[in-house]
Write a protein that binds this DNA or RNA. Structure first.
Lengths: 349, 349
DNA sequence: TTGAAAGCGCTAACAC
DNA sequence: GTGTTAGCGCTTTCAA
């Protein structure tokens, strides 16, 4: 293994000079810099990460905690994770992959050991047990031992109480409202919402509940009726759900789907029942654009900006680590794209 | 931050004693051990990762390189990644997430800096440019500077030349053979294979080509005709592909699908064309079980054992790091589960 | 603009 | 069974 000392010797300078060439923290004459850089290249030198972390008190690693469960739409998580890794590298950080498995202990372990300089948490629940460890500022009852002691962190998702936290998320409430607005504008008066699996609601995942809130309050404002049904994915589960919906509200002409694995079954079943999309019923999906355009009917949808979320999370974290910017809640504005699955409500029979 | 020295002082022992209590590398009297453990708990001590890596010459980190592209079936990659993270933790390792973006440079960086003790590579191509850096043993032309210098590594996937490499993969060739066997056994004589996107083949990804090999050689043995067509996912692309297939081979009664995003479109289009599954045509999918059971027809399928692959990769890597076990190619035996999508070939008209 | 040297917190000989 | 101590490779004062 090549060490900094070897590079120094090869270049005929002192160790500190090599270090400063690398960090740029003091000015170096052009000739010295070139000699050092030359030696670095010739010897194939890579600074030792452990030594750096020890002496410099920063590991240049960001921890990313992904959920262990996979009852959520996996490609979105993956896209976020990849965006995080890519953006982090662009800022000189590596990414440590943690699963939710260890729970709050992982936070303590990573914080305490200096393994990572900061963390990003995905799949945050409304009352998340990891939050007390991360809350900064002057939040009462926080569990850190002193000011400035907490791990810089960014949540992807919104807990109930965001005091002293930095969060990045799609504005799910606005997303729900946007869907209702679109359908109401087309004259639909009876809307059914096909949601995530029941477990997602029971777990009090923020995004699902907030979407519902947005949906319902805009429905109230526009005089539209909304019926919400959680749903496991797949054909069988959806067939049941759909039957119950039409049973209870035969006049339903609009659907909002927030569950990727229910999208295609819904379209298939509607077709099978002789209900044309969008002539008889309109469908609005909350899903990644890729899913919307690959479906059997090109879906009017609100996109889930996975990459954007990952990228923004890292950028906020890096800003914090550089001492710029503090706690903040960033809500991304949802955008609805009209495609072939929504149209005017049919005239009442 | 609590240091080992502080723990030692608090417990009234020397630093080395604390270190040995932690590592278990020499025997400690019960009373001393308890005093030390007590102090560790009271002070909330966590060993510093950087110092450990520096002094101990091991970071206890495994790097996992995932593909940046997402034209492959993402949930499988994610499941592997999560299995890797989980299994690694169980062995005391953390996982560093690298994207393919940096290419071979990432390998050099991680190796050279001692950031990770070992790496796992996913999505290996037949002639992968990262391989020369990883090849160990006495492989000719390897790029390491001396014996024992290379990074311990495990590939998930099989390159063309496995000399000096450890690989874990599903036996794709046997998988292809198994599919043909099943269909041939049911009397099908004309089989169409709907494959991954053309880009996957152009990139010479091992699994796709090997599956084809297995498919074709077993077809030759059983006197079955095979027509292979790569296919982008989605309805439109599949409609085209399917039309071409029936155009060229009107007598096709068996399908093998190796492309998750073609599964549902295929079923829908067959239905739409009035071809009943499995009465008129049989379908065998190569996909995770979850996809097979959630489809609109429960699919006869060969499962992709994602978790198993991730787990085995880590276990082999840990064995290598512990000085046990060397290079080896581990091929997991495919298993075909008969469900509702395959049946006897219809009598010739 | 550069060098010398004191640590960073831990591991692992080497003592006893 | 336990203590002492010399590094591991780097960053960063302090001095020149």
């Amino acid at each position: 293994m090549v060490t900094l000392a070897e590079v120094a010797q090869h270049a005929g300078v002192s160790a500190s000079t090599v270090s400063y060439v690398l960090s740029g923290k003091r000015s170096i004459s052009a000739t010295t810099r070139q000699r050092v850089e030359q030696s670095i290249r010739e010897l194939g030198y890579h600074p030792n990460a452990g030594a750096r972390a020890l002496a410099g008190k920063r590991s240049n690693i960001i921890a990313l905690m992904v959920p262990l469960r996979t009852d959520m739409y996996v490609p979105v998580m993956m896209e976020i994770a990849i965006a995080v890794a890519t953006t982090a590298r662009a800022h000189g950080y590596d990414v440590l992959l943690l699963t939710g498995e260890e729970g709050p202990d992982a936070v303590r372990r990573v914080t305490g050991s200096g393994l990572a300089d900061a963390m990003i948490l995905m799949d945050v629940e409304l009352e998340d047990e990891r939050l007390p460890l991360l809350r900064g500022g002057d939040a009462p009852g926080r569990a850190t031992s002193g000011p400035g002691d907490e791990q810089p962190s960014v949540l992807i998702g919104l807990p109930a109480d965001t005091t002293g936290l930095t969060c990045v998320d799609l504005d799910w409430s606005a997303t729900g409202a946007l869907c209702v607005e679109h359908l109401a504008g087309l004259g639909h008066r009876d809307i059914a919402v096909i949601g995530e699996a029941p477990a997602v609601y029971e777990r009090h995942t923020g995004f699902a509940e907030r979407t519902l809130d947005g949906l319902r309050s805009r429905a109230r404002e526009t005089g539209v009726r909304v019926l919400h049904r959680p749903c496991e994915g797949g054909y069988d589960a959806l067939a049941l759900t759909l039957a119950r919906i039409f049973d209870e509200r035969p006049g339903t002409t609009g659907f909002v789907v927030q569950n990727e694995s229910a999208v295609e079954p819904l379209l298939a079943l509607l077709r099978q029942q002789g209900r044309a999309v969008p002539e008889d019923v309109s469908v609005v999906a909350i899903c990644p654009d890729q899913v919307a355009v690959q479906a059997s009917v090109r879906l009017t949808s609100v996109a889930i900006p996975a990459q954007e979320m990952g990228r923004r999370a890292v950028e906020h974290l890096v800003a914090k680590l550089d001492g710029r910017g503090g706690d903040e809640v960033v809500l991304l504005t949802p955008e609805l794209t009209v495609r072939a699955s929504s149209g005017p409500a049919p005239a009442a029979p």
